[in-house]
Simulated scan of single mutants.
Amino acid sequence: MLRQRTTSLTLPRVLGLALLVAAALPVGLAACAGNGAVPPPEVTPRSLVVESFPAEAAEESPPGPPIEGMTNAIVDATVRPARLTVTMWGTPGCMPYPVSVTWYDPWTVHVTTAPSDETRCAPDHLAVSQVVVLPVDHPADEVRTVRVDDASVAFAFRQ
């Protein structure tokens, strides 16, 4: 004949089990954190923009404001260090902004942008110029191509 055995949970057993779990939980969490299981906090890329203004107010000739939805650039080698003005369309406060400017080769400047984290965007859609300083790895007067987020853009050169 089979007998069924039951175990009753008494208050001392429940308290002992609770203490065991309470002691093991911080150790387990620390082990997960030490092994990279907890993702690092998100870092917002830093803007490289030294000046920003509506494209209509800029004295940019050529190319002036780009066609809506397009991007253009002006390399200004008359100043040291040389500056690059990138003009693109967007809403004030929500424009993508340059976070990296590098030389792709001696003739090509590559700009990488990041989306704005602003949540209160204006309803206006306009061309905004953002100025960044060019890296001094190569002479700015040799620029033949400007790329913004891997797309070649129309550009003008000022010497």
Rank of each mutant, 00 (worst) to 15 (best):
H125W: 14
R3P: 15
D150M: 09
L2M: 09
D117Y: 08
V133Y: 03
A37Q: 08
G34L: 06
P92L: 11
S61V: 06
P123Q: 07
W89A: 00
A127L: 11
G36Q: 02
V50S: 10
P66M: 08
T44W: 10
H125V: 06
A156Q: 01
S116Q: 08
T85E: 09
Q130S: 10
D137E: 14
A77S: 13
S129A: 15
P45R: 07
A156V: 02
A122S: 15
P54C: 10
T85K: 14
A114S: 15
L134G: 06
V38E: 03
L134D: 03
D137N: 13
P12Y: 04
A55I: 04
A55F: 04
E42K: 15
E68C: 07
T87A: 12
T91S: 15
P98Y: 05
V111G: 03
E118F: 07
E60Q: 13
P123W: 06
V50T: 12
T119D: 05
V75D: 01
L25I: 03
T113H: 03
M95N: 11
A77R: 12
T145Y: 06
A33E: 04
P41N: 07
P39Q: 08
A114E: 12
P65I: 01
A127Y: 02
S152A: 15
R120T: 08
V99M: 01
T113C: 03
G28S: 13
E60F: 11
G28F: 05
R46P: 00
A82L: 10
G90K: 07
S52T: 14
A58P: 09
L15H: 02
V14N: 06
G36C: 06
V148M: 11
L126G: 02
T145K: 13
D149I: 12
A82Y: 04
V43M: 13
Q159V: 01
S152H: 05
N72L: 07
E68L: 10
W107K: 14
L20R: 06
E59D: 14
P92I: 09
D117L: 13
N72S: 12
L126D: 01
D149F: 07
D124S: 15
R147C: 08
V146Q: 05
G28K: 02
S8M: 10
R83D: 01
M95S: 05
P26F: 04
M1R: 08
F53I: 09
P92N: 04
P65N: 06
V101W: 02
A114L: 03
S8K: 13
A30V: 00
V133F: 05
F157T: 02
P45H: 08
P62D: 04
L29D: 01
A23R: 08
G16V: 04
T112K: 15
R13T: 01
